[in-house]
């Protein structure tokens, strides 16, 4: 109940943020632009629309999570609204979870709007609603949940600008770390490989949530990949949230 009250208040705050609508507008423009790109491309037009559309949803969703998430906790401390909140019978972890859920719900609504625009554009070309796209969007949502947790984690101890830089770095590393795996396969066994493996385990691999190519090209995806990616998303998010709670638990609000 208390967590939901904070989540509801966070949703009210986030939904009034102008950045959200600016990003939503650009996301819509990019999804629409996929139609122009499709016209310029030789080959399957629909695949281009799907590719660019899903990539736009993923990118702008991540930007929304980072730009709003990094300010959420910091603003409460900076504006001193946290004084009255923490003096009420609420645990600090409940406050953080409320913030997280509030933003996740906001992102869900934004994702829903972007998906409607995307599916409507697709419908104009194929005259069918491509429900399979929702699978890719579901994994984008899981990725956004993780990025939100990371943004909130950084927001617990650093300013919004610094938190945004850290979170964007997390996003980029997460999408490039798969290259590290290829490198490891080519390395000879030894200390270097072991250290590399440890680093690869610690670094996030956000490509686990990327099913765009398979869905767009109708490639078969074994169920174990879905299960693995879902668990990866859930546990990584929980891990980052627990880390945030530990940082937040003993923080002085000066």
């Amino acid at each position: 109940m208390k967590i939901l009250a904070v989540a509801n208040n966070t949703f009210k705050e986030a939904i009034r943020d102008r950045i959200l609508y600016l990003l939503l507008f650009f996301a819509a423009v990019c999804i629409g632009f996929s139609r122009v790109l499709a016209l310029l491309t030789v080959g399957d037009e629909v695949k281009i629309i799907k590719d660019v559309g899903l990539a736009s949803i993923s990118l702008f969703g991540a930007l929304m999570a980072i730009l709003i998430g990094t300010g959420l906790v910091y603003k409460e401390i900076d504006k001193k609204t946290i004084y009255t909140l923490i003096s009420k019978p609420i645990h600090r972890y409940q406050f953080l979870l409320g913030k997280f859920l509030g933003l996740v719900f906001t992102l869900f609504i934004m994702l829903l709007l972007m998906s409607i625009i995307f599916l409507a554009l697709l419908f104009l070309h194929t005259y069918t609603i491509e429900w399979a796209m929702l699978v890719a969007i579901f994994f984008i949502f899981l990725e956004l949940c993780l990025i939100t947790a990371v943004a909130i984690f950084f927001s617990c101890f650093s300013s919004p600008i610094l938190s945004s830089i850290f979170s964007i770095a997390f996003y980029l590393i997460g999408h490039l770390s798969w290259g590290f795996e290829t490198l490891l396969q080519k390395m000879k066994p030894g200390v270097g490989k072991t250290l590399g493996q440890i680093l690869y385990t610690v670094l996030p691999d956000l490509e686990n949530f990327n099913f765009k190519t398979e869905i767009v090209h109708h490639l078969p995806i074994p169920t174990k990949f879905f299960v693995y990616s879902s668990f990866y998303g859930i546990f990584y998010t929980l891990f980052v949230l627990i880390l945030s709670m530990l940082v937040f638990r003993k923080r002085d609000f000066i």
């Binding site: 208390k2 609204t81 009255t84």
Partner: peptide, 26 residues
């Protein structure tokens, strides 16, 4: 508790604001 120079959620209306805090008391 009433803090010095009260800073509150300025996007809420007075009754929304009180409702939010009341919910924290269950």
């Amino acid at each position: 508790f009433l803090p010095e120079n009260p800073y509150f959620y300025d996007y809420l209306t007075a009754s929304e604001f009180l409702r939010f805090y009341a919910q924290l008391f269950g």
